[in-house]
């Protein structure tokens, strides 16, 4: 029924993505979030000033997926690398993209101190409650009772700790300009998350300082759930443990 002349292009590859194929599993929210980030870079027109910092995790190749300068950081240290880049050249727009093992376990110190100094960087934090890349072990964000390969009987909070509320922790600090928790489980939330990523980047462009966008994401492979079931699980269960919304907005 539609003819090509009446069709509007609603989905195109963001200009700031290279042709390199993603290495994410099909149906993983990482792919969606990486595209959202590229779209935000396009929208703000900052591709020629941006440096993307890839973590160690499923996004390890992210430094060469963007048509932006890129760098790969050691596991957990992206916030320190971002600090070095931004301090050396304040004209750069510095974005770190990190998983929950990377940011909230091994890199907790770097994360908190960069936020506390109010480094003028943007941190995209992929909270998928698991170590995706290494095969599905427990992450600091793994839910109480959730099974993972290193907690086969489920996370026992009495011996393994509670899911770490990263956005809430960062929100207690005086310096951050914007701290939010978003989700990607349905189109409405995807649109909100997209706006949040854009805002975080805009704040950096405007010199407002540090932002952290925590994004509840799926790991269909590690969770052993088809993508649609995984999104329903985020809506029904994960958002209960990790409430959505802006925690700090000093814009």
């Amino acid at each position: 029924m539609s003819s090509t002349d009446t069709m509007t292009k609603v989905f195109a590859r963001p200009r700031s993505l290279t042709e390199k194929p993603f290495t994410y599993c099909p149906g993983c929210d990482h792919g969606l979030l990486t595209r959202i980030l590229a779209g935000a870079i396009d929208k703000l027109g900052i591709q020629e000033r941006t440096v993307i910092i890839a973590p160690v995790g499923c996004a390890v190749f992210a430094y060469e997926w963007f048509r932006c300068d890129g760098i790969q950081a050691s596991h957990g240290r992206a916030a320190a690398v971002a600090t070095g880049l931004k301090r050396a050249n304040p004209d750069l727009i510095v974005i770190s993209y990190q998983g929950d093992g990377d940011l909230a376990a091994i890199g907790t110190a770097e994360t908190i101190h960069a936020a506390n100094r109010g480094e003028a960087i943007t941190v995209i934090f992929v909270n998928n409650q698991i170590y995706g890349m290494t095969g599905g072990q427990m992450a600091p964000t793994t839910l109480a009772g959730q099974r993972a390969t290193s907690c086969p009987e489920g996370r026992d909070v009495r011996t393994m700790g509670h899911p770490l509320p990263v956005a809430e922790m960062i929100a207690t600090l005086a310096a951050p300009a914007y701290v939010t928790r978003q989700s990607l489980h349905d189109p409405k939330h995807v649109a909100q998350a997209t706006k949040a990523v854009e805002k975080a980047l805009r704040y950096q462009v405007e010199g407002k300082g540090y932002s952290l966008v925590e994004v509840l994401s799926t790991c269909p492979t590690g969770w052993r759930m088809p993508p649609a079931v995984a999104h329903k699980h985020v809506a029904d269960v994960v958002t209960g443990a990790f409430p959505l919304g802006d925690l700090v907005d000093r814009g």
Binding site: I71, R77, A82, A88, L92, E110
Partner: peptide
């Protein structure tokens, strides 16, 4: 120049990694 007292030696060397990547002597 920029002086920064890092939160650890681990952070400090990774800050150097970032600054070196930016092309600045560190």
């Amino acid at each position: 120049g920029t002086f920064l007292q890092a939160e650890s030696e681990v952070a400090a060397i990774n800050m150097c990694y970032g600054a070196a990547a930016a092309g600045v002597r560190t």
